Simulated scan of single mutants.
Amino acid sequence: MRSKLPVLELRKWESSEGSDPYSYGYNQGTPDENYRNATYILHSLVDIVLKNGNYLIDIGPTANGTIVFPSRSSLLKVGEWLKFA
């Protein structure tokens, strides 16, 4: 009798984190150099998408709706990469 091979079930899933590694949202106490950089975001994005996942990254705008420079800069670099990917 032949045994059945396991069937790989692909399920949708999501990984969520903030561009500020200490807060899911804007935190004025976080230094700019501590924000997640474009390389980190791209590696996470590629890894998660290859595993059938969705990557949600919070950019935590300030109270007046401004996206702080480190988040904006990283996301623009990721966008440039995606444009040519």
Rank of each mutant, 00 (worst) to 15 (best):
I59V: 14
G18S: 11
M1G: 08
S3E: 10
F69C: 01
P61V: 04
D32M: 03
K4M: 08
D47I: 06
D47V: 04
A63M: 14
Y55T: 03
Y40Q: 12
S23G: 08
Y35F: 08
K77D: 15
P21N: 07
K12T: 08
N27L: 05
N52Y: 15
W81A: 12
Y55E: 09
G65A: 06
P6A: 06
D47M: 11
S19G: 01
V49N: 01
G25P: 00
G79Y: 13
Y24G: 10
G79K: 05
F84H: 06
K4V: 13
V78F: 13
L5V: 10
S44C: 09
L8H: 14
F84D: 08
G18I: 00
R2H: 12
H43T: 12
E33C: 00
P70F: 02
D20R: 01
N27K: 00
G60A: 13
G18W: 01
R72L: 06
A85K: 08
L50T: 07
Q28W: 05
S19F: 02
I41R: 02
S71W: 02
I59G: 03
G53M: 01
R36I: 00
S44W: 13
E80D: 11
S71T: 14
Y40K: 07
G65P: 07
I59D: 05
Y40L: 03
R36L: 12
R36S: 03
E9V: 09
G25M: 06
T66S: 11
G79N: 13
S3A: 15
K51V: 05
P70C: 02
N52Q: 08
D58T: 00
K83Q: 10
T66V: 15
V49E: 06
P21A: 11
S16W: 11
N64W: 11
V78R: 01
F69M: 08
N64C: 08
K4D: 06
D32I: 01
G29E: 04
